[in-house]
Write a protein that binds this DNA or RNA. Structure first.
Lengths: 244, 244
DNA sequence: CGTTCACTTGAAAGTGTTCAATTACTGTGG
DNA sequence: CCACAGTAATTGAACACTTTCAAGTGAACG
């Protein structure tokens, strides 16, 4: 029986967010401070739009800027010497990326758009100067990075200890939570990444992703139509994600 | 055939490092700056010694300080709601830990000593004040955290894409590299963590760790006597860690 | 000297992967 | 608007790797 419906479904919410309410702003306000907004204007040099598959920045390139996503979505991945690829994250509206480049002065991963995406660019040199003027800003950057580490720890738990069902459920709940935070629907949304990307990110084969999706659907926990997903029971999902 | 030898082997190098050359120092010097050393004295409040199994800090406790290890070794782990444990890292002489607590104001993981261990304690409030005075310091903290993120990415690759042999080889090479950086022997050392901890960290069963160790030994790549390990061929190990 | 803990090893059982084939969708050009 | 080509997703079956369970050995410690 065909699982697909022939219907054009809306893509991931493209609500183009003002730079004021995008990540750079959040970065400055993370401390709860009220940094002068005019500072932000000098900080954000430009806005860029990149199409599906195009590269925002490439691993190895000198670190010029951090980015906040205004609309669309981006995936980041690292490419090992042996050719293996590991997707390190998916990034949505309002989120900041590029901060992991600070140590090396070079980007550690490559960032590409999963759909047409618009970003704010904040040059790092200026960010750095301003940091000395506004300690809050650096503190916020610390927080963003600290957050990233927390995320990494969760991921270690996921990759090291969870089985396929738990991984995928955890993944869905994570997306749901992030969308909710930005006031999008958190029970029905479109996933901009392919099954293959999901599998790569979660450390499982593309085929396993499909099979688990099918199983979850058969159990009535979710409905999938292509990349459009509806979560019917967050509680049930949570139960699956945290079984044992 | 018994694989054990009845011989007391020296534990992990206990060269008690001056606080000057320990992590907090490194933290301040990461930028290449020459921060006034007297600052450090005010920074480092106290030195603590904890015995095997004792807790340095506990997940959930308010974030008071970051620590640098003067001698011994520490493991950090998180405890999930469902009771599962994930070892998030092993930390050796000269390394800094506790920085991931900045976001939440609470420690994210629990840190316990794997053997008798001595640490420097740098209270965070003072660290924070000083940060405003010395932007270099905060910049160094950013670098340390950025490093942590890089480490996380490597680990994602390891947990998501590598098989048991590759994981263990990567692990050994990583320890080797870190010891080398601190001028300890990087081809012969004692592992202070149990097989079970290694397995937990690398996302594999304790038994699998044993089996792979045995295999590596049979292939002549390493020699194991209890927790004392000798790496006979780093090249071979690298080949195994990067196969495919 | 005996108990306990860490480590090792074997055999059976899962869980997820790989390979291969099929189906469905997307975008492009007529 | 339709046909075609290429890409993404799904499904089945065989296989591989790792885990689990069980048992045993050696070392450390009181």
């Amino acid at each position: 029986m065909p699982r697909y419906k022939t219907k054009a479904v809306p893509q991931f919410p493209h609500a183009s967010v003002d730079c004021d309410s995008c990540g750079i702003f959040a970065l400055c306000h993370a401390v709860g401070g009220d940094t002068d907004l005019s500072v932000l204007d000098t900080l954000v040099r430009s806005r860029r739009t990149i199409k599906r598959g195009e590269v925002l920045y490439q691993a190895g390139e000198p670190f010029r800027a951090i980015y906040a996503i205004r609309g669309g979505s981006i995936k980041t991945f690292i490419l090992a010497d042996d050719g293996r690829v590991q997707v390190t994250g998916f990034h949505f509206v309002g989120e900041v990326l590029g901060l992991d480049a600070i140590t090396m002065g070079r980007y550690n991963c490559t960032a590409t758009a999963m759909e047409t995406t618009s970003v704010c660019e904040a040059p790092f040199d200026r960010l750095n100067e301003l940091g000395e003027e506004f300690p809050d800003l650096q503190h916020s950057m610390l927080e963003v990075m600290s957050h990233e580490i927390l995320h990494c720890h969760e991921l270690m738990m996921l990759l090291g200890k969870k089985n396929a069902e738990e991984r995928l459920s955890t993944f869905l709940l994570n997306m749901s939570r992030r969308l909710e935070k930005r006031n999008f629907s958190h029970t029905q949304f479109s996933m901009s990444m392919s099954r293959s990307d999901i599998g790569n990110y979660l450390g499982m084969a593309e085929e396993t992703v499909c099979r688990v999706f099918t199983r979850l659907q058969d159990e009535g926990v979710i409905t999938l139509e292509r990349r459009q997903i509806t979560l019917h029971s967050l509680d049930q999902l949570r139960a699956i994600a945290t079984q044992k």
